[in-house]
Simulated scan of single mutants.
Amino acid sequence: MGLGDKISNKAKEVTGEAKEKLGEATDNERLQAEGLKDQAVAKAKQAGEHVKDAAKDLTNK
């Protein structure tokens, strides 16, 4: 996984956490849900990148 991808995915995850917390604090269910979705998308992308890295490592051995 490239460093840029890692930074981008982590930023999306942190932004999602912030949205979720803000939604909780303001009783805004839409914002909470959006934050949870952002976190899930970021984590899924991170997992996909880890799979690509593992496959790349296997082919290089």
Rank of each mutant, 00 (worst) to 15 (best):
G35F: 10
E20R: 09
G2Q: 10
L58S: 15
T15S: 07
K43H: 05
M1N: 02
G2R: 11
G35L: 01
N28T: 02
T15I: 06
K19C: 05
N9D: 10
A11M: 06
D5V: 05
T15V: 06
N28F: 10
E29K: 14
A18H: 00
R30H: 15
E29D: 09
M1F: 10
G2I: 15
A33I: 14
H50T: 15
A42D: 02
V41G: 01
V51F: 04
A55C: 13
A18Y: 04
K61W: 13
A40W: 05
T59M: 14
N60W: 09
T59K: 14
E17Y: 04
K45F: 05
K61N: 15
K61R: 15
D27K: 13
G4N: 10
L36I: 09
A44Q: 07
G16Y: 00
G16Q: 04
N28L: 07
G16M: 00
R30T: 12
K21M: 06
T26F: 14
D5M: 05
K12S: 08
A55G: 12
N28Y: 10
E17A: 04
A55L: 12
A40Q: 13
A33T: 11
G23W: 14
A40K: 11
K19P: 05
K10L: 08
S8K: 06
K56Q: 15
A55Y: 14
M1C: 03
